[in-house]
């Protein structure tokens, strides 16, 4: 589904991704771990199309399409969803309005009619109930004054409404209480299907207890230094990152 080949990306003169290669197949769940500042969010943002980052070489292919040629909104409509590590507050833009506009942008791209207002509300409330979100959040400004955990739940709500083909969740599990973590994990598991893929960027085993990954990768200093199955995450939890870094150099 998503092929990343020797991707290098810089911001200003600083190279942050220094040759990342990754192959994510339909139906798979991948976890990306790695120390702070290793480039995990950068990778996620480059896939979503942030133009602060300059791709200097390599390729990213999504279902056979050159992703790097597409605008961020085109990538979204093709089914890529990024759950932000730091969701942006947008005062004055109604949460329900954004959700609906996002759903309709995708439907339009698929040649479908706009979603019926009643149906939209029903669906949104259903998803919110699953995530343990008060329907009042629909009428607030997007992430405006939301607590850290509320923002993350809101990201998952958007994901649940948009049903993306590829979801990249950048530390969506950070800052969540135990109930929220379970709710988010259930949201992710509900999305799992043979024709979808999920990438979890995380620092913790906790989320991976709920959402079992097929593959685990370690990103360090802009490169993937080790890949394995879910046992790699457990090993990291025990031994820290130095061990992989040393192994990579050695």
């Amino acid at each position: 589904m998503l092929q990343i080949d020797n991707l290098k990306a810089s911001i200003g003169d600083t190279e942050i991704l220094r040759g990342v290669s990754l192959d994510i197949g339909a139906g798979e769940v991948h976890a990306i771990m790695g120390p702070n500042g290793s480039g995990k969010s950068t990778l996620a943002q480059v896939i979503a199309g942030h133009d602060d980052y300059r791709v200097t070489s390599g390729s990213v292919t999504f279902n056979g399409q050159n992703l790097l040629e597409l605008e961020p909104e085109e990538r979204a409509r093709e089914g890529i969803f990024l759950g932000f590590q730091y969701p942006v507050e947008i005062p004055g833009v109604n949460n329900a309005y954004l959700l609906k506009a996002a759903v309709n942008a995708k439907r339009k791209h698929q040649g479908l009619a706009e979603i019926d207002a009643f149906e939209f509300l029903k669906l949104a409330k259903e998803k919110m109930a699953l995530l343990g979100m008060d329907p009042k959040f629909l009428n607030r400004g997007v992430n405006e004054g939301f607590s850290g955990g509320e923002k993350k739940r809101n990201e998952i709500l958007q994901m649940a409404m948009l049903e993306p083909r590829l979801a990249i969740l950048d530390e969506t599990d950070s800052g969540l209480d135990i109930d929220a973590l379970r709710a988010v994990a259930e949201g992710v598991n509900a999305l799992r299907s043979p024709d979808r893929a999920i990438v979890l960027v995380t620092h913790y085993q906790r989320l991976l207890d709920y959402v079992q990954p097929d593959h685990v990768h370690v990103l360090s200093a802009g490169r993937i230094v080790r890949s394995g199955d879910k046992s790699l995450a457990l090993e990291l939890e025990e031994r820290g990152y130095d061990w992989v870094r040393e192994a990579a150099i050695g």
Binding site: G49, E73, I90, G92, V93, Y97, A101
Partner: peptide, 26 residues
Amino acid sequence: DEAALFYLRTRGLSRHDAKQILTRAF
């Protein structure tokens, strides 16, 4: 706000629409 524009675009909204929405909110 460029960060807000990007956020809206990752939700499928065109740059033009995202600008309109942010301006109206202002």
